[in-house]
Amino acid sequence: MSATVSMRDALYEAPGPKTRRRVAIGTAISLVALAALVAFVIRQFYINDQLNPRYWSFFARWTTWRFLLTGLMGTVRVALMAGVLAIFLGLLLMLGRISSNKVLSTVCHVITDLFRSLPSLLLIYFFFLVIPRYGLKMPSFWMITVPVALAASGVLAEVFRAGVNAVPKGQTEAAMSLGMTHGKITRKIVLPQALRIVIPSLVSQLVVVVKDTTVAYVVSYPDLMQNARVLISNYDALVSMYFVVALIYIAINYATNRFSIYLAHRSGSKIISRTEENPV
């Protein structure tokens, strides 16, 4: 964050009296424009009667929050399970890809790229619409968890690979000169260091997983979004509920992001996200 601020400020010379005045005027104008925008939104709520207490008062009741929290627990359960599965699968895909076996390496490469280039919703439809046609009945929890995990595993495989590449070459060479076998080097030297490097990236990937779980209503799994829909039909308060739920999701994801940045800062490693990887 400090780098952002310094570069932003570096673009400008120290302002003289004229520029300072101009910046002050610009600040005043933008504040007025901002206030006008906020006023417009509030007016829009007001004239459509959406500020009516009956749309908001039920948020003061504990039962509302208990039901939303139950939904949130569902979201957390799916996200954590999908995250664990994705880490496991991603690790396997990466190990397969860096192995010296050409066939295994190519297969893992193709699978990784395939999962990265399919929308998670398509995978959810696969488990929701296609698999049951072949007589396999899955509980709704797994119908949402497995596709989300598969979509994330492709990305995580690439994150792990970047982590392995970030371990200095000298480490492997030193281990080789000690006479360690290839498998032993991967297990004892490369992986422990690579895993430590990618921890912040794994945390930040959790944001994508949480976002993917929001379509759990497709398979009618009671997550936060699904429970919010139930409350909407109970209280007949759609606008307030959808806005509150959106804010809850934003808060969770923002906190997760900040936590991963904090971890990255502390360990001095970089967050590897989808944007920095090689495209498919």
Partner: peptide, 15 residues
């Protein structure tokens, strides 16, 4: 960047 797409979509479509 933190809002899930569905969450934004339901606001646009229904709210």
């Amino acid at each position: 960047r933190n809002i899930p797409t569905v969450s934004l979509l339901v606001i646009f479509v229904y709210a």
